[in-house]
C-alpha cells in the first residue's frame, strides 16, 4: 500500500515534469544547494521566455528547452539542466531584443510605391 502511494506520487511527479517552476521532486531535494541553483537558472530562463513572448517574439524551441531542463534537473543531471537553461535564457533574451528591434514597421526598400 505504502509502496503504491509512493509510486503514484512518483507518477504524478513524472507527469507534472513537463511543467515549469518548482515541482514536488525539486521540493524534496530543495535542501541540496545545487538543486536550488539550477532551479534558479531555469526560473531565469522562463522569465526571459516570457519577456520574448510579451513582444510576440518567442522562438520555437525555448519552451521545449525549459521543459527538458526541468526534467534533467529532476533526473539529477545538473550539467545538462544548466546547459539547457542557459540556452533557453539566451534564446529568450535574443527573442526579446529581436522583438524590440522590430517594433517599428520598416517597409523594405525592394517594395516600390
Amino acid at each position: 500500500m505504502q509502496v503504491n502511494r509512493l509510486y503514484s506520487v512518483l507518477l504524478v511527479t513524472a507527469l507534472l515534469g513537463g511543467g515549469v517552476g518548482t515541482t514536488l521532486a525539486a521540493d524534496a531535494k530543495a535542501a541540496d544547494p545545487k538543486v536550488v541553483e539550477v532551479q534558479k537558472m531555469i526560473d531565469g530562463a522562463e522569465k526571459a521566455r516570457k519577456k520574448a513572448a510579451s513582444v510576440d517574439s518567442e522562438w520555437r524551441d525555448t519552451g521545449k528547452f525549459i521543459k527538458q531542463a526541468q526534467a534533467a534537473l529532476k533526473a539529477g543531471d545538473y550539467d545538462k539542466a544548466m546547459k539547457l537553461a542557459r540556452k533557453a535564457e539566451d534564446e529568450g533574451n535574443l527573442g526579446y531584443q529581436q522583438g524590440v528591434s522590430q517594433q517599428e514597421l520598416h517597409l523594405p526598400s525592394y517594395l516600390k510605391y
Binding site: D56, R60, D61, Q98, L107, P108
Partner: peptide
Amino acid sequence: ENGRKFYFTRRGQLN
C-alpha cells in the same frame, strides 16, 4: 496595419 506589421516583422531564430 497590425496584419501588415506582422507580415514585415522578422521573427524566430532565423530572423
